[in-house]
Nucleic acid binder design. Structure first.
Lengths: 396, 396
DNA sequence: CCGGGAATCTGAATCGTTTCAGATAACTGG
DNA sequence: CCAGTTATCTGAAACGATTCAGATTCCCGG
């Protein structure tokens, strides 16, 4: 009724996706006006705006292309989460899931979405490509080996970056371009959030020592990327690349050093952080070191496997074998697992807030969150008897 | 030594982020050449390419901007996953995590990354914004209420889309623009992957009926978005918006209809899919319907809560109370939970492959995967005695 | 010495927006 | 009726790349 004009120019806009320009042309207005109809309603009359939106709908135009908009505006509304293992591992780990959940929540408040950036398992493709090619406003590194190419690639992007459970490297060491170029001070854009990994580990080991255990098995998380697991040689221990693993190990050793001199640690490395790997490691470890009466596990997930192994070996927990985990997952209380609690959700929130601060141009201070020992039913005093765990039934 | 020229034009490129153009200018070559140095090494001499890359490094240029590249190329390398609840829920649900993991894996093979698109819990912000504003090559809908705005927004983007556990709506009903505009045939870009939800549910209910149970409680997943939980009225049941919930309910009812006429179902709806909600619901349900001897749970997570509740009430499972779950999570075997297995990982893989096919211009057929009943130790015949579960101790 | 083909490199259009700096028109009060 | 606002709308320059269609140069056999 009201609109008199409709199709002044009859230039065939052809097929394909409709653009702002075509809407503008169809109405005989400028593209700026159409853009304004979407982004700044106050810049045009309500009537015209209505007509624009109507025409857009009729033409099947779904609004400004997000990509072009991002390019022009300089912001994408996306934060990348870097994970240096195949992504399915991330989801398989409840602690990671919990962390990501709370991270996502705190970022969502600022309308930011998470882009999952994982190293492909496939050795064909370049593991750095995702990080280098991602359109993001910021990066969060959830786990990367110290001094790794991946970490370097992240910092090279000079984006706001938050490092989780990992120290922020000093400039020179990590960005050592042989040609002395300063390569931007990435430190100004980078912040760190960590937990007291070593402290928690120390408490755990101390607990076992206090209970009188002298032969303690340690189920380690991966020491470095893609290696394979198994007994840990001193040499391998020296090369530990993952910071949390290194710290927890350090904590264990510190407690040991402070305890009675006869106590010994038997290290084994899980190939992956899964219950079945924990189970496998436990079986192997107990087989080769039958005097072990307690297990320090670097995650509740591994501990769960240890419990399973103990069960299948007929070793009662905690009477014959004490088991202690790390993380304190939601399900661990049900298992009566003694473990080291860490504020996983709060960590996610802190990381989110640090990112928000960085995006806002501030430089938030590094955060360090506490850990705590939660004693439940999976630990007890070292069995009094002559400790003959020997002659294990071979696993079925 | 070799390079003779270095800085012909001395126009100050000023500060900020370095661009392709500035690298080109510094070298005195065209931008096309610099671009080719990165994207088509065969288009320039190795020597020049080396010089280009060197200069780029010196200047601190980190390679072509992903955003601009995506705009020009028309591909982003990102697939959006739409989840119509706050994201922290997604991560809290092991089944979702499992699914996402395998999905991510299958997409990673094609160098595609996952962008998590969740409805913000905050009612302030537009829940459609993430979907409308995401720069993606395709969308995967993990859970959305039927006929919802969200689903409409997804389809309106006319991108390759895969609907998970949800029927693909027919054109007209969902895209009914009042002005008869056809609005693109989105069906050609949309594919579906589902499981036999109803079938699995039927088996579960049948199992309980076969065991002689006549008063069966049902712990439902959310029937619709943001509601609140509690006993399910017939009216509410009619409005169930989530497809899996509807289907499972249908399966339960079908088995019931085929069984002895005295059997009754007592429905209650969990507010969220968490163990503690399952526990809460179970307590409430048993309180109000003490004759219940068996529980059908729509997820293993809820079942886990049910087990916890039973434990705290002193009801032994399965002697006094049978519990049956849905999903068959990795941890459920440990709990001896009888449950309905679904191929969660395969589902993720199928969804990934369907997306790949769509991106490749094909139209993959809809997929429907089977479910199976896994009988473990949490179900048994209905207790013979006069079933006096009455006089429950009030929860502490 | 010449025509033709390969090897290199460049100009300019394009991707689809946003936004700044006006231009035009309409209204205000004096 | 005019200067000064205010309300609307537009032109054109970014944003940072990719890519197609040449333009040059070089090399080679004839």
């Amino acid at each position: 009724m009201s609109s008199r004009s409709a199709s002044p120019s009859s230039a065939p806009p052809s097929s394909g996706r409709i653009t702002l320009r075509e809407v503008a042309r169809a109405l005989g207005v400028s593209v700026a006006t159409v853009s304004n109809a979407y982004n700044r309603p106050d810049q045009l009359s309500a009537a015209l705006r209505e007509r624009v939106l109507d025409t857009a709908r009729t033409l099947g135009y779904g609004g400004p292309d997000p990509l072009a908009r991002s390019l022009r505006r300089g912001r994408t509304g996306v934060i990348g989460v870097v994970y240096d293992a195949p992504l399915e591992y991330a989801f398989a780990d409840p602690a990671a899931a919990l962390f990501l959940g709370s991270l996502a929540q705190s970022l969502q408040a600022a309308s930011l979405n998470l882009l999952l950036l994982a190293s492909p398992g496939d050795p064909q493709t370049d593991p750095l490509a995702p990080v280098q090619g991602a359109s993001v406003d910021g990066l969060i590194v959830y786990s990367a080996a110290q001094d790794s190419e991946l970490l370097r690639a992240v910092l090279a992007r000079s984006l706001p970056t938050v490092l989780v459970d990992q120290p922020v490297p000093v400039d020179q060491s990590v960005l050592g371009d042989q040609n002395g170029q300063p390569a931007q001070d990435h430190r100004a854009q980078t912040s760190g959030v960590q937990i007291d990994d070593a402290g928690g580990a120390r408490l755990a080991a101390q607990h076992l020592i206090d209970l009188g255990h002298t032969h303690i098995g340690v189920l380690c998380l991966e020491l470095g990327p893609r290696q394979g697991g198994g007994p840990v040689t001193p040499e391998r221990e020296r090369q530990v690349a993952y910071h949390p693993t290194a710290e927890r190990l350090r904590g264990y050793r510190e407690a040991l050093a402070a305890g009675p001199s006869g106590t010994r640690l038997f290290l084994t490395e899980a190939e992956r952080n899964t219950p079945s790997d924990g189970e496998r490691c436990t079986l192997a470890l107990l087989q080769s070191e039958p005097e072990i009466t307690a297990l320090l596990c670097m995650s509740d997930v591994l501990a769960q496997g240890a419990l399973r192994a103990a069960h299948s070996l007929g070793l009662s927990v905690p009477q014959r074998l004490s088991v202690i985990g790390y993380d304190d997952l939601p399900g661990s209380a049900d298992l009566k697992l003694t473990t080291v609690w860490q504020p996983t959700s709060e960590k996610g929130q802190q990381v989110g807030e640090a990112m928000l601060a960085l995006l806002g141009g501030q430089i938030p201070p590094d955060v360090r969150l506490p850990t705590r020992l939660v004693v439940r039913g999976s630990t007890a005093a070292r069995p009094k008897t002559g400790v003959q765990v020997n002659r294990l039934p071979s696993p079925p």
